Amino acid sequence: MTESTQASSEPLIRHTVRDGVAIVTLNRPPQNRLTRPLYAELEAAIRHGVRAGARAMLFRSELADFCLGGDFREWPHLETHSARRERFGYSNGILNAIESLPIPTICEVNGRAYGGGFELALHTDLIIAGESARFRFTEATLGVSPLAGGVQRIAERCGRAAAARLVMLSEEITAAEALSMNIVAKVVTEASLAETAMRHAVQLASGPTRAHAVTKSVLGAWSAGGVRSADEVMIEHVSVLLATDDVQRGVQSAITAIEAGQPRPDVPFHGQ
Rank of each mutant, 00 (worst) to 15 (best):
S91N: 12
L101I: 08
I46S: 04
S192C: 11
E259S: 15
R87Q: 02
A176F: 03
P11Y: 03
L142W: 00
V267K: 08
A201H: 09
L193C: 11
D245W: 12
S206K: 03
G150R: 00
I235N: 07
P29Y: 02
R228I: 11
I154C: 08
Q272G: 15
R18C: 12
S61W: 02
V202A: 14
A45C: 04
E119G: 09
G261W: 04
R51M: 14
G143Y: 00
S180H: 10
R60S: 14
V218F: 05
L169E: 15
A54M: 04
P265Y: 02
I128H: 12
L122V: 13
A230E: 00
R14P: 03
N27D: 14
V240K: 12
S8P: 07
G20W: 05
G93Q: 01
A40Q: 06
S82I: 11
E171G: 05
T16P: 09
E171Y: 00
M1F: 00
G116Q: 11
V214I: 02
A64V: 13
R264F: 01
G89I: 04
S206R: 07
I258D: 15
R51C: 02
P208Y: 02
W222C: 02
K216G: 15
L126Y: 15
I46M: 15
S8D: 13
T124A: 03
A178C: 03
I235K: 14
H200A: 08
E43Y: 03
S132P: 03
I258F: 15
R136G: 01
G225S: 10
V167Y: 03
I258M: 14
L78R: 07
Q252T: 13
H123Q: 12
S239G: 11
R112N: 10
Q203F: 12
L242I: 05
K216A: 03
F135M: 01
L166T: 07
L122Q: 09
G89D: 09
E119S: 06
R84F: 13
N27M: 13
R33V: 01
L122R: 07
L12W: 04
S82V: 10
E131M: 10
S132R: 07
E171P: 00
A148R: 09
R165I: 00
E156W: 04
P208K: 08
F135T: 03
L204V: 04
M181C: 00
T141L: 09
T2Q: 14
F59T: 09
S170D: 03
H15D: 14
L120C: 06
V167M: 15
L120A: 05
P265V: 15
A243C: 06
G226D: 10
A161F: 15
R134L: 11
Y114T: 08
G207A: 06
G159E: 04
R55D: 01
V233C: 12
E41D: 06
A162V: 12
H15Q: 04
R199D: 13
V167L: 09
V188D: 04
D125C: 05
M168F: 13
R160D: 04
G143C: 05
E119Y: 02
F72Y: 01
R165L: 11
S91L: 11
T138V: 04
T189Y: 08
A178M: 10
T2W: 06
